[in-house]
């Protein structure tokens, strides 16, 4: 048992223990805090399997943002009305067996992989030069499968529109209420010191994503977090849903993506193709636009819809 194997096993056992604890524990708040810790451990795992980009995304979006989102919901007395009766013990055992069987099937496939592990890495490496980007994952996200990334931004936008559609009719166009009545001094101090720093880090991570692990999703999440901090500290109030600047910010990313993509028809022979030599600047332009839009979208998702009585 080499030391790393011991560390890996310890990490896996802790994570599985934490997961079971999260399902079993009665208090919802404890489960959510457990989930955030789980997110941190998970990003360690991503580092262990050589996927720093994904580790960054996991800790920013998976652990952080999702944790904050769940925390905001924690305020509910009953964590939501029960959707079904608590099933009887034999039924729970049955579901346990079924879920276990699915996990077993999955485990068997992991332990007995196909003879040759298929990979597209050589193919990606071969074309990396023409995308003008060093980081292969950014190449996949922004060049080879740029269409997926574009659609994903639309998914986040539609999720935001879905969240906003839950606003009560009276409060449409109002400002979501984020800051609490009295803002504690330490939070204010943290916001005043940390936010400028966070913005620099966010932009740095987006910029460095071209050649090193990083990227726009991670950067945008950090910017969104900073924006939440500003709103929570009451330095700025959340933008009104109907504010034109917010809508422009939301739309600028996809719009630039479409513009450059459609220009690809003429200049580079295919939608979302980049004329050779110009790939890197174009990708950076798209990433800048997306940074703004996704930061705005994630921020407003975290801020949630305006409630009864909020005023524009």
């Amino acid at each position: 048992m080499t030391e790393t194997a011991f560390f890996d096993t310890l990490l896996v056992v802790t994570m599985i223990g934490l997961a079971i604890w999260m399902i079993v524990v009665r208090d919802v708040f404890a489960a959510i805090i457990g989930f955030m810790a789980f997110g941190l451990l998970l990003s360690l795992v991503w580092l262990r399997i050589e996927a720093p980009d994904v580790g960054l995304t996991e800790i920013a979006v998976g652990g952080g943002a999702t944790g904050v989102m769940l925390l905001r919901a924690r305020g509910l007395a009953s964590a939501g009305d029960a959707m079904n009766a608590v099933p009887s013990v034999p039924f729970r055992v049955l579901v346990g067996v079924l879920a276990g069987a699915v996990a077993l099937f999955l485990g068997a496939l992991v332990v007995f992989p196909p003879a040759v592990a298929p990979t597209l890495a050589p193919l990606a490496a071969e074309h990396l030069a023409s995308t003008g980007v060093g980081n292969p994952i950014t190449a996949v996200l922004m060049a080879y499968r740029a269409f997926d990334t574009f659609l994903e931004t639309v998914v986040v936008l539609l999720a935001l529109i879905g969240v906003w559609s839950l606003t009560p009719d009276g409060a449409w166009g109002a400002r979501p209420r984020v800051a609490s009545a009295d803002v504690p001094a330490p939070l204010l101090l943290l916001a005043q010191w940390l936010v400028p720093l966070g913005i620099v880090i966010g932009i740095y991570i987006t910029w460095v994503g071209a050649d090193e692990p990083g990227g726009k999703f991670q950067g945008a999440t950090i910017l969104a977090a900073m924006w939440m901090l500003v709103m929570m500290a009451g330095l700025r109030s959340a933008p009104a849903l109907s504010s034109r600047r917010l809508r422009i910010a939301l739309v600028v990313g996809p719009a630039i993506f479409i513009a450059i993509g459609v220009s690809g028809f003429h200049f580079a022979g295919a939608f979302l193709a980049y004329p050779d030599g110009l790939a890197k600047p174009l990708i950076l332009a798209i990433e800048a636009g997306l940074l703004i839009s996704i930061a705005a979208m994630l921020g407003m998702l975290l801020a949630g819809p305006p409630l009864e009585g909020d005023r524009p």
Binding site: P184, P186, L187, L189, L190, W193, L194
Partner: peptide, 13 residues
């Protein structure tokens, strides 16, 4: 350090 201190203050409050 910074985050820990702020967090502790808020939880204490």
């Amino acid at each position: 350090q910074f985050a820990g201190a702020t967090g502790a203050q808020l939880v204490a409050r």
